[in-house]
């Protein structure tokens, strides 16, 4: 028998050699816990994320945009499911993870606690929120835990249309009537800063970052990903003829990156801790769906057992 210390050394050697960790492999308890926390948070985000966009399905302004949005929000349900499925390989039940979400013990991406006000918000979410999510997800395709990485590969493949559909909506509105353009600008104003917050606190304030990087759960820091996202997005906003609501945004020739203004981290922590405009509304909607679905889930199991019993008796 190897000592814990030796096991941990072996484990880290595998990580360093880019060998994926699989469910039955030995892993430090803290690694398992970190993964469960991160993967379930990610899953919850997908599922809660269905709500702000789902809000506009019945009001989509064309049948084409209606089916696209419906398919997209459904994809998010699928992605939530892939991720719960990955978390379950670590020896937890989805039901317990959902319980943690509903009791407020588990977090989800705070961006979904903002309201979708106009149709342009659907464009802005696709373009900015999915854009930010994709940056993070592409990195996670190389994460060290096998099932998580495989779920991410699948998700990234499917997500590629999400950002495009968002940008297409923005494009139509930015080039449309003055009212549409105004809606588009307003949506950008409201979604820009929360999108930047999606990457998480700055590196020097991020409590989990260093260990996650060492374990290669994360492959890039919050600040690196945020900068990458800003650099990419500025051009896209320019093409739309929209203004990013940051007076400090300026190309820095020396850094070869955009400089940007201070992020309101006080708002970020407030929203994470339950004080965003929609936190209560979102959680209530999830709890309601789960509670109202209980009789359906119970009946399906009861029926399956009855049928099994009949089969055995026959």
């Amino acid at each position: 028998m190897l000592s814990n210390e030796e096991l941990e050394k072996e484990f880290q050697a595998k990580i360093d050699a880019e060998i994926k960790i699989e469910p039955k492999d030995w892993m430090p308890e803290a690694y398992r816990k970190t993964l469960i926390r991160q993967i379930s948070q990610h899953a919850h985000s997908e599922v809660v994320g269905m709500l702000p966009e789902g809000n506009w399905i019945t009001r989509a302004p064309s049948l084409r945009s209606k089916v696209i949005l419906l398919a997209k929000v459904q994809d998010e349900a699928g992605h939530g499911l892939y991720l719960y499925s990955a978390a379950e390989t670590l020896g937890v039940d989805r039901e317990d993870l959902i319980e943690e979400l509903h009791t407020g013990k588990a977090k989800y991406s705070s961006i979904f606690n903002y309201p979708t006000l106009t149709w342009a918000d659907i464009g802005a979410i696709g373009w900015l929120v999915d854009g930010a999510a994709i940056a993070n997800q592409v990195m996670l395709c190389r994460t060290s835990y096998g099932p998580y990485a495989r779920a991410m590969v699948r998700i990234c493949k499917e997500e590629s249309f999400h950002q495009r559909q968002g940008y297409e909506i923005m494009l139509k509105m930015a080039k449309g009537t003055p009212e549409q353009k105004q809606m588009a600008q307003d949506a950008l104003n409201r979604w820009w800063w929360p999108s930047l917050m999606m990457f998480g606190p700055p590196d020097d304030k991020s409590i989990h970052s260093a260990q996650s990087l060492k374990w290669k759960i994360k492959r890039q820091t919050n600040d690196e990903l945020r900068q990458e996202f800003i650099d990419k997005t500025v051009k896209q906003a320019e093409y739309l003829g929209l203004t990013i609501p940051d007076p400090h945004l300026k190309w820095n020739e020396e850094r070869q990156h955009y400089d940007f203004g201070p992020i309101n981290w006080e708002e970020f922590y407030q929203v994470i801790n339950g004080n965003g405009p929609c936190n209560r509304q979102r959680l209530k909607a999830r709890i309601k769906a789960h509670e109202e679905g209980a009789w359906v889930r119970e009946a399906a199991i009861a029926y399956a057992e009855k049928k099994q019993a009949k089969k055995t008796a026959a």
Binding site: D75, G78, L81, S85, R150, E158, A300, A304
Partner: peptide
């Protein structure tokens, strides 16, 4: 390809069709 929850085998197949074969 992954896993999912279902009450019985038939439902598992149908759920798999909807979850893992959307494309």
């Amino acid at each position: 390809v992954g896993s999912l929850h279902a009450a019985d085998a038939q439902m598992a197949i149908e759920n798999a069709r909807d979850v893992y074969c959307r494309r």
